[in-house]
Amino acid sequence: MSESMDLLEIRNLSLSFGSVRALSDVSLHVKAGEITAIVGDNGAGKSTIVRCVAGVHRPDEGDIVFDGQVVNFVRPDQARVAGIETVHQNLALVEDLTVWQNLFLNREISHGVGPVRFLQKKEMRKRARDMVAKLAVNVPSVTSTVRRLSGGQRQAVAICRAAGFSSKLVIMDEPTAALGVQETRRVEELIERLRSEGHAVLLISHNFDQVMRLSDQVWVMRAGKCVAGRRARDTTAQEIVGLITGAIAA
């Protein structure tokens, strides 16, 4: 059953920035078709671990196994090609480009010879509309610039970009941190829709309610280590908080 298969497996990952040990011997796994959350205090290493997976950082030690293969990403686009999409905390949208340009950034549909690539704008606009419609994302028009969108709409565009292009794993770093109640709810719906579309989601969040509500699996990090893993239905918010602070031993 594909439900129980590990899509991503992180084995004994360690990474230091100079004398600072950001990750030490971290192991965790993400199942296909599930929402997996990583929680922890500020500086616990949550963002660092996902940046390793997304190809931004290269671990000093350990392996990342994705879809049955040991991968070694040097640049973010290699992770993208492999099927790992990231919604960064800053969203990584270019404000002065349109929604469709952002959706297709660095995977533009083009034709031409060698390095001369002419854009196929019409095709990209059409597909962008499809992508937006599929996730029922509330965006005024794919031809408006991102600058004119609200925070929630921008988040939706970023998620939409991550969900498109047949990605297998979507990493989200604090997707609702900067949003209001209404917009948070919309984004949460979007995340659940991604799961029902068959994507695996790796979620970093501070919001325990959200984590408990959305996720199937929770990993707790503390001081660069992964201290515990729990099935969401088998645990409580109190236990998670205890694990984060160290009040409860793993």
Binding site: R75, P76, A92, L93, V94, L97, N106, G112, F118, L119
Partner: peptide, 24 residues
């Protein structure tokens, strides 16, 4: 405005972080 390179120029100018995050 009609090539991939041009879009990447605009993206680099608009936000280096965003451009790099998409692998430009």
């Amino acid at each position: 405005f009609k090539t991939k390179f041009g879009t990447h120029v605009l993206a680099t100018g608009g936000s280096v972080e965003a451009a790099q995050a998409t692998g430009i």
